[in-house]
C-alpha cells in the first residue's frame, strides 16, 4: 500500500485562513448581532471554537457556539449494519431567527451539509444559514456551496484530504493522502 502524503497547508497557513474567515464572517453579516456558530462533529467543533475566539478578539464579544452531530440524519445509514457511533449534539440556545454559521473542516460531496441543514431545521427556524469550511475539495454531489472557504483544493477521488488539528491530532496541518488500496 503506497502512502504518499503531501502537506498542503501548515499550522501558520491554517491560522491565517481562520483569521481571514473570521473577518469575512463579520464583514458579510455586518457584525455579530444574532450570529451563532455551529461546529459539525468532529473536526468542525474545534474550528468553530477557534473562530469564536478570533471573533471575540476582534469584536470583544463572544458569539454563542454549539456542537451538531449529524449521524442520525445521514442518508447512508441503511446501507450497512455497521452503525457509526453517535456523538452528542449540544445546542444550548434557540436557533429561531438566528444567523447560523455552520463550520466544518472539509467540504466534499455536500451530503454532510445537507444532513446538517435538516438537523438545524428540526431545532428551529434560523433566519439564514451560512457555511464556513477550511478546505473545499470539490466533487459536489448536491447543489451545496460554502460562503467562507479557507482554501480551494482541487483533488482527485483517489485522494484522501485530512485536516489534522492540535486539539485532536496533536498537530495543525492539512494533508493529502494518496494510497492505492489493495
Amino acid at each position: 500500500m503506497k502512502n504518499k502524503n503531501r502537506v498542503v497547508m501548515d499550522a501558520e497557513g491554517i491560522d491565517r485562513s481562520l483569521t481571514r474567515i473570521a473577518y469575512e464572517i463579520l464583514e458579510k453579516n455586518k457584525g455579530l448581532d444574532d450570529l451563532v456558530l455551529i461546529g459539525i462533529r468532529t473536526g468542525g467543533i474545534y474550528l468553530a471554537n477557534r473562530l469564536q475566539r478570533k471573533i471575540a478578539a476582534i469584536e470583544g464579544i463572544e458569539a454563542p457556539s454549539g456542537i451538531l452531530d449529524v449521524t442520525l440524519y445521514r442518508d447512508d445509514l441503511q446501507k450497512t449494519n455497521k452503525k457509526p457511533r453517535i456523538g452528542k449534539t449540544d445546542i444550548a440556545f434557540s436557533l429561531d431567527d438566528r444567523k447560523v454559521v455552520l463550520v466544518d473542516d472539509v467540504l466534499f460531496t455536500g451530503r454532510t451539509i445537507r444532513a446538517a441543514m435538516d438537523a438545524l431545521i428540526d431545532f428551529g427556524r434560523p433566519r439564514l444559514i451560512q457555511l464556513a469550511v477550511l478546505i473545499d475539495r470539490g466533487h459536489r454531489e448536491l447543489p451545496i456551496r460554502a460562503d467562507f472557504v479557507g482554501k480551494n483544493l482541487p483533488s482527485s477521488l483517489w485522494e484522501d484530504v485530512s485536516v489534522k488539528l492540535t486539539e485532536k491530532d496533536g498537530v495543525d496541518e492539512v494533508v493529502i493522502e494518496m494510497d492505492s488500496e489493495e
Binding site: D69, L72, Y73, K83, G87, K88, D122, F123, G124
Partner: peptide, 20 residues
C-alpha cells in the same frame, strides 16, 4: 448503553424526531 446515552438529548428537543 453508550448509544442510548446519545439518544437522551433528542427527547429534550422541541422537535423530538430524527429521520433515522
Amino acid at each position: 448503553l453508550d448509544t442510548a446515552d446519545s439518544f437522551i438529548e433528542i427527547s429534550t428537543r422541541e422537535i423530538k424526531k430524527v429521520p433515522t
